[in-house]
Amino acid sequence: MADYSSLTVVQLKDLLTKRNLSVGGLKNELVQRLIKDDEESKGESEVSP
Results as ranks from 00 to 15, higher is better:
residue 1 M to R: 05
residue 1 M to V: 03
residue 1 M to E: 02
residue 2 A to N: 15
residue 2 A to R: 13
residue 2 A to Q: 14
residue 3 D to H: 08
residue 4 Y to S: 02
residue 4 Y to E: 00
residue 5 S to M: 07
residue 5 S to D: 12
residue 6 S to G: 08
residue 6 S to M: 09
residue 6 S to Q: 14
residue 6 S to H: 08
residue 6 S to F: 06
residue 6 S to T: 07
residue 7 L to I: 02
residue 7 L to E: 04
residue 7 L to T: 03
residue 7 L to C: 09
residue 8 T to V: 01
residue 8 T to Q: 05
residue 9 V to C: 08
residue 9 V to W: 06
residue 9 V to Q: 07
residue 9 V to D: 10
residue 9 V to L: 13
residue 10 V to Q: 15
residue 10 V to H: 15
residue 10 V to L: 11
residue 10 V to N: 06
residue 11 Q to R: 05
residue 11 Q to C: 04
residue 11 Q to D: 08
residue 11 Q to V: 05
residue 11 Q to I: 02
residue 11 Q to A: 07
residue 11 Q to F: 01
residue 12 L to K: 00
residue 12 L to F: 00
residue 13 K to D: 03
residue 13 K to G: 03
residue 14 D to A: 11
residue 14 D to K: 10
residue 14 D to H: 13
residue 14 D to C: 06
residue 14 D to T: 11
residue 15 L to W: 02
residue 15 L to E: 09
residue 15 L to N: 04
residue 15 L to D: 01
residue 16 L to M: 04
residue 16 L to Y: 02
residue 16 L to A: 05
residue 17 T to H: 09
residue 17 T to Q: 11
residue 17 T to I: 12
residue 18 K to V: 07
residue 18 K to Y: 04
residue 19 R to W: 00
residue 20 N to C: 12
residue 20 N to D: 11
residue 21 L to R: 03
residue 21 L to P: 01
residue 21 L to D: 06
residue 21 L to K: 10
residue 22 S to D: 14
residue 22 S to T: 04
residue 22 S to P: 15
residue 23 V to R: 09
residue 23 V to W: 08
residue 24 G to P: 04
residue 25 G to E: 02
residue 25 G to L: 00
residue 25 G to Y: 00
residue 25 G to R: 01
residue 25 G to W: 00
residue 25 G to M: 02
residue 26 L to G: 15
residue 26 L to W: 10
residue 26 L to K: 11
residue 26 L to N: 13
residue 26 L to F: 10
residue 27 K to L: 01
residue 28 N to K: 09
residue 28 N to L: 08
residue 28 N to D: 07
residue 28 N to A: 13
residue 28 N to I: 05
residue 28 N to S: 15
residue 29 E to G: 03
residue 29 E to C: 01
residue 30 L to W: 10
residue 30 L to Q: 06
residue 30 L to A: 02
residue 32 Q to P: 04
residue 32 Q to K: 14
residue 32 Q to L: 08
residue 32 Q to A: 14
residue 32 Q to I: 00
residue 33 R to S: 03
residue 33 R to A: 06
residue 33 R to G: 03
residue 34 L to N: 00
residue 34 L to V: 04
residue 34 L to E: 01
residue 34 L to R: 02
residue 34 L to I: 03
residue 35 I to C: 10
residue 35 I to A: 08
residue 35 I to Y: 05
residue 36 K to H: 11
residue 36 K to A: 13
residue 36 K to Y: 03
residue 37 D to V: 04
residue 37 D to A: 13
residue 38 D to Y: 01
residue 38 D to G: 03
residue 38 D to N: 03
residue 39 E to I: 06
residue 39 E to P: 03
residue 39 E to H: 08
residue 39 E to W: 10
residue 40 E to K: 14
residue 40 E to N: 09
residue 41 S to N: 14
residue 41 S to L: 10
residue 42 K to E: 07
residue 42 K to L: 13
residue 42 K to V: 09
residue 42 K to D: 05
residue 43 G to F: 15
residue 43 G to S: 14
residue 43 G to A: 13
residue 43 G to W: 07
residue 44 E to C: 13
residue 44 E to P: 08
residue 44 E to W: 08
residue 45 S to N: 05
residue 45 S to W: 06
residue 45 S to Y: 05
residue 45 S to D: 12
residue 46 E to R: 09
residue 46 E to L: 07
residue 47 V to Y: 13
residue 47 V to C: 10
residue 47 V to S: 14
residue 48 S to L: 09
residue 48 S to H: 04
residue 48 S to D: 11
residue 48 S to C: 09
residue 49 P to R: 10
